[in-house]
Computed example of a mutant assay.
Amino acid sequence: MVREPALVALVAELFEYFWSAAWAPAEVLPEGEVMTGRQIEVLRLPAAGRTDAAIARKLELSERTVRRLVAELTAGLGAESRFQAGVHAARLGRV
């Protein structure tokens, strides 16, 4: 048991820091289900810095469809940004 006030304060501060930075991924697809090629591309291209217009041209979709797909995948992954959605998907082994 640790009772040293300075050490307890340090451990508590570290816990608070890591707790605030923690990320619990939401499952975008049921276990065992594979993402479609389109979903994978829609996650990869924004992470690579592509704009909605560039993604739409590449995938032969409308910009509105691209924005909707990105928003759905981002929300499903519990991400706060398009780039973060790509990172979360990679951590989950989805892309």
Rank of each mutant, 00 (worst) to 15 (best):
M1D: 05
M1R: 13
R3N: 02
R3Q: 11
E4P: 14
P5H: 06
P5K: 09
A6T: 10
L7F: 01
V8S: 06
V8I: 13
V11T: 10
A12L: 00
L14E: 02
F15Y: 07
F15K: 15
E16H: 11
Y17P: 07
F18G: 10
F18W: 07
W23L: 14
W23F: 14
W23V: 14
A24R: 15
P25H: 15
P25T: 06
E27L: 15
E27H: 14
L29W: 00
P30E: 11
P30D: 09
P30T: 09
E31I: 04
E31M: 11
V34C: 11
M35S: 11
M35I: 09
T36L: 06
G37P: 00
R38G: 03
R38A: 12
Q39N: 09
E41L: 13
V42Y: 04
L43W: 14
L45C: 05
P46L: 04
A48H: 10
T51Q: 14
D52T: 08
A54F: 05
A56T: 07
K58A: 14
K58F: 03
E60H: 08
S62V: 08
S62Y: 00
E63P: 01
R64P: 00
R67S: 04
R67E: 05
R68N: 10
V70P: 02
E72Y: 15
E72K: 15
E72L: 15
T74P: 07
T74H: 10
G76M: 07
E80L: 12
S81H: 04
R82Y: 00
R82V: 04
F83Q: 01
F83A: 03
A85H: 02
V87M: 05
H88D: 08
H88E: 14
H88M: 05
A89C: 00
A90C: 07
R91A: 05
R91G: 11
L92S: 05
R94L: 12
R94F: 03
V95Y: 03
V95L: 09
V95M: 12
